[in-house]
Design a protein around this nucleic acid. Structure first.
Lengths: 202, 202, 202, 202
DNA sequence: GTGTAAACGAGACGGTACGTCCTGTCTTTAT
DNA sequence: ATAAAGACAGGACGTACCGTCTCGTTTACAC
């Protein structure tokens, strides 16, 4: 029976108090100084924790931040899902407008961009970033689109996965590249164009 | 009046040999060690150049890399534009498939991702990145779509700018997030879905 | 009356097995890595003992080593005393030559030097070091010199304490400073010179 | 022609200001906190210097301290030599009493003990310590003893090197081990006993 | 041609943060 | 209650780079 203990620390002995303090300090600091100037030393100092306690449990500052952000966002969003008023265009616009607003809020934007950037640079982190933060978001879109299919508003043969990419890809691109403003106007136009692609074939 | 200009170096006395060596060393090193482990000191050492020579002419290592990459890519792509066989779907698929292949080539991918990442993190760099590397790419798409409009294959009222975002956003998203493979299959499906959105209204 | 004694651990419950393992590990390690690189953690690990068990019973790693060394040396030397053949010069040379050999043996030298060094740096340890390891050595010299006085070979008014310092001080100095080799030649010359000082006044 | 440059820093570019500040800070700090608690970081901070500047020029904190101490002591002592009033006993007592006083002065004692301890632990340092600080001291004794030989007060066949060890060894031993007080009384008795050993044979 | 001023290669500098190591304390579980 | 185990806060280690700052040494234009 393997149970490779080796040098992995004992999770049952982990200090919850320290864990919380570290995540909290990370979120505070990334807002104050930005991701590039965020240092493990500063996190440890702010959290009142030894550096080793961070290195023991996380492989990088990005991983810390991912945990911190996940903890905050957990189910806060996503859980509700996308409203279904029967009017899919209105519903998608509502949600995408809200998302645009969220991405315009610095408190949300700073750590989220930090994670997106770190993920783009680090494949291992990316896997976690996508799975823990992006996938859940896609799922609620897929659910709403599926309802749209049943309501006859969406092509029943549509590749829903690809559909969400068409809807959200342009959005993320604008945001990451800062190649344009994330206005309600933009959200509306994007939804309209996407829905033309999603519509049942004549 | 002396017009001191103080600290701006004299471009006419700039050493072309050093400039080339620096750009070359940057491209080599970013391929060997990756962007995060790329250091100014290593570039200077590899290029046989004093550090100050780099600091004199570039504000950051990302800026060096942007110059290096621009030099390589210069007009190599883009200049030709997108072929126009009359079949816009086939033409777009051809180009997007080629792009997918390009982004799968490590020699291209490493520095380009480095720049994309650095741009996502740094607004000032982003402006240059978008203007010098992304915009020219968009333009050729816009040109082809405009031709499609004239040929009656594309909705004449279509917002062509937004259209390119719908076409390329999902592509960039997959690539940056590594959320899926950049296959020809993907390129084809993406073009097909986009064209449904771009088609003239019934 | 409870006689709490609060924080002094209960000696009667002390694990003899752990004590032995710790002393043994200390001696081994000081030989392998030297005193400066000797760590409490390594001793604990080698001894298969918790760190706290060391901290509970010893105030410092030097104290551990002092115990370890004392245990080994205990009475092994000293007990026999210095031989008395009637020829004090020969007797002293014999002993000092033997001492020179002992100090040239790495197995003895490493821990003893470690203790001497630690003692020179730490007054509290020094007191113990001198009392438990050096004084017993001096006593046997004093005893032999006293016999020499009675035999009329040594000045009856000689300060025997100071005499041992004159005999052993130069020896220790050479050894500690490595300012010269501890040869039999050196031992002989030192004894001869000292005895000129110890001789009865004309 | 070898001249192994390799990675040795360029001495001609060395900052004299930094060198002085480092040596000064070392001496201050060793007095304030003692040798064991003396850290390179603290020296760098006090000197207003980067740590690398210390690591670049010295192999260890002991080496820094040796330089610092040497700079202070340089020729201050030793240069004058031992007075020669014709009465060698009085002269030696004068000097040894003065030395006893010096070793009782904390400002001198702290760094000197630090060096002695570090030297006892580190052979490489010891070589320098002996050569730069101890040998010059011995030389002045040898010179005075030689004068004594010419004056007929000292055995012309005496091994002067060994003689200085007999005189100073007991002194250093007492001091390092703290095995007794360094009083004028002690100095006098030691000189008297040594001179009995040094006297011309009857 | 020579003089002078900038750019250059080199690299020392004051710093910051890294990731590792060890200290001495504290907590948990087992004997 | 002591012990083994090991997580913890703290702090120094020695290293790697940062961006700035001299140093001489080219280099190229002005005279």
């Amino acid at each position: 029976m393997p149970s490779t203990t080796a040098k992995t620390p004992d999770v049952s002995r982990r200090s919850e108090r320290s864990r919380k303090a570290i995540l909290r300090a990370s979120m505070e600091l990334v807002g104050e100084v930005g991701y590039t100037k965020l240092t493990i030393e500063a996190i440890a100092a702010r959290a009142g924790v030894g550096k080793q306690t961070i290195y023991r449990w996380w492989p990088s500052k990005a991983a810390v931040l991912l945990d911190a952000f996940t903890e905050v966002v957990r189910s806060e969003d996503y859980q509700a899902g996308i409203p279904d008023t029967g009017d899919i265009e209105a519903d998608l616009k509502t949600v995408l407008r809200a998302t645009a607003d969220e991405f315009s809020d610095a408190a949300f934007e700073a750590p989220y961009r930090a994670l997106a950037v770190a993920s783009a640079a680090d494949a291992e982190l990316a896997e976690q970033f996508v799975r823990r933060l992006q996938e859940p978001g896609l799922e609620v879109y897929i659910a709403r689109l599926r309802a749209g299919q049943q309501a006859g508003q969406i092509d029943p043969d549509l590749d829903l996965r690809l559909a969400t990419e068409v809807l959200l890809g342009p959005f993320q691109q604008r945001w990451l590249n800062r190649s344009g403003p994330l206005t309600h106007e933009f959200a509306d136009r994007l939804v309209e164009m996407a829905l033309r692609a999603f519509a049942p074939r004549a």
